[in-house]
Design a protein around this nucleic acid. Sequence first.
DNA 1: CAAGAATTGGACTGATCGGTCCACTCTAAA
DNA 2: TTTAGAGTGGACCGATCAGTCCAATTCTTG
Lengths: 205, 205
Amino acid sequence: MPEEPKTERGRRTRERIVASAAKLIERRGVEATGLDQVLAEAGASKSQLYHYFADKQALVRAVIAWQTAAIVDGVAERLERIDSWAGLEAWFDTLVAYQQAMDCHVGCPIGSLAAELADTDEAARQDLALSFGTWAGQLRTMLDRFRERGLLGPDTDTEQSAYAVLATIQGGLLLAKTTRDPERLRIALIAAGGYLRSLAPAPER
Amino acid sequence: MPEEPKTERGRRTRERIVASAAKLIERRGVEATGLDQVLAEAGASKSQLYHYFADKQALVRAVIAWQTAAIVDGVAERLERIDSWAGLEAWFDTLVAYQQAMDCHVGCPIGSLAAELADTDEAARQDLALSFGTWAGQLRTMLDRFRERGLLGPDTDTEQSAYAVLATIQGGLLLAKTTRDPERLRIALIAAGGYLRSLAPAPER
DNA sequence: CAAGAATTGGACTGATCGGTCCACTCTAAA
DNA sequence: TTTAGAGTGGACCGATCAGTCCAATTCTTG
């Protein structure tokens, strides 16, 4: 039933629908977003939607893939270039500045989707777990670089530390979104940085 | 329009409705929970609901108050007795064990509500910001005790640290819920503990 | 240009949503 | 025993939901 677009035109239509759905879901959540709203936003019709997606769940999973690609890929590029504490903190500042610019709306689309879907849509939950996994993997690559350069102790578990940093980012974003205060994110990130620094080899402390 | 129950019977009915709503919302979220489901669960009728609540939003806010009382009060009792690193870590272990026992469902009801409602229901957002605030306040009281006892440096900003710990807990719960792996929460809590320890006065390091 | 496939428009359906309404029962005080 | 107000039951409403269906259009290819 679910079909992949076979022409360029179809591909663009599918893309338009997913992008519109992603935008609306980011703001109002999955349950609160109606298919008719999505189609109005995308300028498409019901038959177009159901031509490319089996049902709403399939569309939601496409949105997850879209958001994952957008965020994780964007973050990866930035993370690759970080190789010092100052560089890490500059990235943290970017995150805080972005939230401030957005007036602390949205937060992290992946995180929001995870909070809403983890207990109600098993397939989506697995997709999101994978998204977090690749994100954590990129953080881990960065931390491996830190370790190589002697910024972290040689016995540091970079995988665990990566998940710890990811958790702190997600929690900070949630608090910032709820209190509408980007400072909450900044404080969380400072704690994440402080934790990592506490993992530095003894002489550097 | 919204009325407070004036008899014992009414009070119990209202309570039953809120408790049922809290239970369902905790599992499926606000948007996915229908009023009819709530009433079926509570064994009540539509007129009873609308006798005590102006609309669904009012019920949701009552649920927020209920969950806040349940969680924050429960946590406060525990936090009061913590006055050492070992005690703190024992509490962390309790949190992880609870998630493990729950198979990583639910997570934190306040956090889930915040993720879903922060951008769509301003009144609820403010309620939830307050809930986080009182929770952070209790953590802060605990950290003040740590500072008094010399476990934290005398210039430690306990308010900020409290929010950092809260953020890490929330993020850890989200990751644990999404990956169904309580280990993710444990790692986050270890990081929170590590950060706090890095704030200890120099001689204790 | 002909034909088959891919794509599109949108009316339609049954279920469910939040919310209204009114007649009814219960309780306690006069 | 009357009565007034608190509490209750559930039928009902218009709106909206996800999803179906089919005829019309556009594109590709021979």
